[in-house]
């Protein structure tokens, strides 16, 4: 293949203001990280609540959380996104629907939609991690709390959940990396995040090899960096012998 590589393309003007093509990667990356972080906060909060619900006594709450997981894990992410973007706004009360469609900019609309979509999708996965973490604890941990007069909320808040989270840091890290990678679906609803900006760069400059090479590298480097950061967090929070204790 006789491709003429031209790395200088990134330093050429885009023709839009004073921007050079390289700037698009930075703005795309910022958007990607903002999106992933916002979605992750939703996923972490909702997923924790759902994960706790799955382990509660009784039938109603565990079943509600279970149904949520079944629903959000068994529909493809892209289908979920299109439903949120194209279908749901028409079902919402007019005031909210119109606000989304007319009052705010298309970019803000897309951002909110993808944030909610990623958050709720990932919450189902976080839920299962949290549930596993809680169920991995020896039964005696909760019992020791109850025996001292703690109520169920206190037992979860001070004993069960803090230990469960330490156990599930590695799988949660993978979910966090997933949400960054999954955020690339946003390019399909015209949100200028990293993949969206990469595609636009290709459209403008026709330097598809260079553009995808750099775009890919950025995803890769960001995820690797986060992976190492989370390993450091895991080490800092590690309590000696946390999982070693047994008993009922």
């Amino acid at each position: 293949m006789n491709y003429h590589w031209d790395w200088g393309v990134f330093f050429r003007s885009t023709g839009v203001g004073h921007e050079i093509y390289l700037d698009w990667f930075f703005s795309g990356l910022a958007m990607t990280l903002g999106l992933a972080l916002a979605g992750w906060i939703i996923a972490l909060v909702l997923g924790t609540v759902l994960g706790v619900m799955r382990t509660l006594p009784g039938k109603v709450l565990p079943r509600i959380a279970g149904a949520y997981v079944d629903l959000f894990r068994n529909v493809p992410l892209l289908v979920q996104l299109f439903i949120w973007y194209y279908v749901i706004p028409d079902w919402l009360p007019d005031a909210i629907g119109n606000w989304l469609k007319q009052d705010i900019s298309p970019t803000t609309n897309a951002f909110i939609t993808v944030m909610v979509c990623l958050g709720l999708f990932t919450a189902a996965r976080v839920c299962e991690q949290v549930r596993t973490g809680i169920q991995a604890l020896p039964r005696g941990q909760a019992n020791a709390g109850y025996a001292l007069g703690l109520n169920i909320v206190q037992v979860y808040r001070h004993i069960v959940v803090p230990q469960a989270f330490r156990i599930i840091i590695p799988p949660l890290t993978s979910e966090f990396l997933n949400i960054i990678k999954n955020s690339s679906v946003a390019s399909l609803v015209a949100l200028p995040e990293l993949l969206g900006q990469t595609k636009q760069l290709v459209d403008f400059s026709a330097a598809q090899f260079e553009a995808y090479t750099v775009g890919t590298l950025i995803y890769f480097v960001v995820n690797i960096a986060l992976m190492f950061f989370m390993r450091w967090v895991e080490k800092r929070l590690r309590v000696p012998g946390l999982i070693a204790l047994g008993g009922k």
Binding site: P138, G140, A144, A147, L148, G149, I243, G246, G247, K248
Partner: peptide, 20 residues
């Protein structure tokens, strides 16, 4: 029952201290 348990100390075979 939580109120009652405050008055009743319980020591387990496997200690069940909170490791964290």
């Amino acid at each position: 029952i939580n109120r009652l348990r405050e008055e009743v100390g319980f020591v387990f075979q496997h200690f069940n201290l909170y490791p964290h």
